[in-house]
Simulated scan of single mutants.
Amino acid sequence: MKLVPLFDRVVLKQLVAEETTASGIVLPGQAKEKPSQAEVVAVGPGGVVDGKEIKMQVKVGDKVIYSKYAGTEVELDKEEYIVVKQNDILAVIE
C-alpha cells in the first residue's frame, strides 16, 4: 500500500527522537519530546485550494521542521506517518 496525498498535503515520516541529551544524560521513554523534524515521503500535486494557486515547495527526501501539533497521524503497514498541509511545514533543513 502507498499513501498518495491530495492537493497541498504532504506525507512525513518522523525522524527518530534523541535518546541522550548533549551532556550525555539518557532520557527515559516518557521524557523524550516528540520531534518536530521529519522526512518528506510523498507530496501532493498542489493546484487550486480555496481559490488560490498552490505551488509545492518541498520534494520527496527533504528534511523539514513542522508545527508541533500539525497534521493527522496515520499507521500503514506498521509504519507511522503524519499527513500535513504544506503551510504547516515551517522550514526545510539543508
Score class of each variant (00 low, 15 high):
Met1His: 15
Val83Ala: 07
Val43Gln: 09
Glu39Gln: 09
Ser23Phe: 12
Tyr69Val: 13
Gln86Met: 02
Tyr66Arg: 11
Glu73Met: 15
Gly61Gln: 06
Val60Ser: 00
Val11Ile: 15
Thr72Pro: 02
Val84Tyr: 02
Tyr81Gln: 03
Lys78Gly: 06
Leu6Tyr: 00
Asn87Glu: 08
Ala38Glu: 02
Lys32Thr: 00
Val26Leu: 02
Gln30His: 11
Val41Glu: 01
Gly24Leu: 07
Tyr69Gln: 08
Asp62Gln: 03
Glu94Cys: 06
Gly47Arg: 10
Thr21Ile: 05
Lys34Thr: 15
Thr21Asn: 01
Val60Leu: 03
Val60Cys: 03
Glu80Gly: 12
Gln30Asn: 08
Lys52Val: 10
Leu15Trp: 00
Gly46Cys: 10
Asp50Arg: 13
Val16Pro: 03
Gly44Arg: 09
Tyr69Asp: 13
Val10Tyr: 05
Glu39Thr: 08
Pro5Ser: 03
Gly24Met: 10
Gln86Trp: 01
Val49Lys: 05
Lys59Phe: 08
Val10Cys: 01
Glu18Tyr: 05
Val48Gln: 09
Ile54Ser: 05
Pro45Trp: 06
Val60His: 00
Ile93Glu: 09
Ile89Tyr: 10
Gly71Ile: 10
Glu79Gly: 13
Val4Ile: 15
Glu75Val: 14
Gln57Thr: 09
Gln14His: 13
Val41Trp: 09
Leu6Glu: 05
Glu75Tyr: 15
Pro5Gly: 02
Gly47Asp: 06
Val74Cys: 05
Thr21Phe: 01
Lys85Met: 11
Gln57Ala: 03
Met56Lys: 12
Glu73Pro: 00
Lys34Cys: 00
Tyr66Ser: 05
